[in-house]
Amino acid sequence: PEAADLRALARHLYEAYLKYFPLTKAKARAILSGKSGDNVPFVIHDIKSLMEGEQLINNGQTSFQEHNIGSDPPDGVELRFFYSCQSRSAEAVREVTEFAKSIPGFVNLDLNDQVTLLKYGVIEVLILMMSPLMNKDGTLISYGQIFMTREFLKSLRKPFCQMLEPKFDFSVKFNTLELDDSDMALFLAVIILSGDRPGLLNVKPIEQLQETVLHSLELHLKINHPDSLQLFAKVLQKMTDLRQMVTDHVQLIQLLKKTEVDMFLHPLLQEIMKDLY
């Protein structure tokens, strides 16, 4: 019966994942490998193609202009692109929040602790969820409508060119584990339910929830990847890399705030990053 409960939990989280995340790994890999039929992404590889692609970017997600913060969008292709990324990130935070709420027991936790778990977990989750969209040459953006090359991202001015390179390095290694969407759903829940986040008021129930999801993940990986040795341990090791990447990412954003005088940081992202580490 216990194994049956763990299987049911894995199914439930996979269904929630499919419900809240519009671009699954299965869809992304189909697009990246050219097996998605007519769904061929627009490739951005230089400034000219970026200009052409901007129209697509702004159709695919809320544009900077729509936020109407009382000023014209700033000049500079890097900042404009950065704002598009922020809008998509804010929307992704909403998706992750909905997913978190679907984890059995999450909404019964102290509300302050729910806020803390999301504050500390959401950027780790967002970075992890970029992996299925990436290969060594570039990344899908804008819900899979656009493929942006890694070389183009590296050609942007500092520090913008430094923002995604560590994520590519991580993703290429992480993708060799070949997790699918059902594995990812459980792993995301494990990350969200980390009982060692600073300032948690009631750690015990969080650890109990995480323990159950961990058991479910271990069992699921054994069934789903019978030939992959030590996969559970390898997956859990990635949590350390994710924490380091968030620390580095937040430092880059702090640097941007100092160097880019006109920079506007989305209020939701500001909330999350303020006093994070």
Binding site: R94, T97, L118, K119, P267, E271
Partner: peptide, 21 residues
């Protein structure tokens, strides 16, 4: 904590549409 994270708090309490974000 809730005071310092009003948007996050709102997202947790009810589903917010992308436009409201």
């Amino acid at each position: 904590l809730k005071e310092k994270h009003k948007i996050l708090h709102r997202l947790l309490q009810n589903s917010t549409s992308p436009v409201e974000l």
